[in-house]
Design a protein around this nucleic acid. Structure first.
Lengths: 114, 114
DNA sequence: TTCTTATTTCGTTTTTTATCGAAATGTTGA
DNA sequence: TCAACATTTCGATAAAAAACGAAATAAGAA
């Protein structure tokens, strides 16, 4: 039961849902996600660690950056079920559509190297 | 998105999940649920109002009692989806099994009229 | 090595949520 | 009517989670 509660709790935060939807569009580094969500870097990092702990996402180092991506093979069936039905859960709504627009103009080079 | 968040948040509380599982076994009044969960009546009443607001459950007056039951026809697809897959989400675990044992010995007459 | 940059960790504050107990509401039955 | 009881509402407290900023870590570039 604990695990189920963790999963639902992880999904109960709007910023974490936005992150999942963004990562389904493409892999992103922390500073890209931060620039879309417009909250502090440390807060984003914390959200990512929560999503990672439950197995929703994985991370990969790429030099100075850490790329986060959707976990292609979650160990837990509940996690894969959510990931494959996220569109059902989150109908395209203003915030999500907006995030995608922002994402199109986000580039880690110009974004982080200033 | 708000609605999705509400649903996940509602499901993120262990006592509310226990209530849903109990109600899938049978309809119950507040005092019966209270005696199983072993938390205050007003707290249980609050949990029930949250589950009701999202459309997971409905209530029916029966004299002095209020019977709560699983909503047989939820308006929201996400809610019906959860209700029909609760066993997938919550594999039979200690607390749930225990609740069912307790339920077997719960009777609103002897319970509340003392 | 030293500097810069991306990210994480840590300590703290703010916000939200769960819980409780008392008071209010509504219903039954004497 | 009044007394007893189930439930809800309200106000307060306690516990949990989100957010922030500063310091620590890690990796590339000078």
């Amino acid at each position: 039961m604990d695990k189920t509660n963790n999963i639902f709790q992880t999904l109960s935060d709007p910023n974490r849902l936005r992150i999942l939807k963004m990562l389904q569009a493409r892999s992103l580094c922390v500073c890209e996600i931060t620039s879309v969500l417009e909250i502090g870097t440390s807060t984003v990092s914390n959200h990512l660690s929560i999503l990672k702990k439950d197995g929703f996402i994985i991370d990969e180092k790429e030099g100075k950056w850490v790329n986060y991506k959707i976990n292609p093979r979650p160990a837990d069936d509940r996690v894969s079920s959510i990931l494959s039905t996220l569109d059902f859960w989150i109908a395209d709504e203003t915030s999500i559509i907006n995030d995608k627009k922002k994402l199109a103009n986000v580039n880690r080079i110009t974004l982080c190297m200033k």
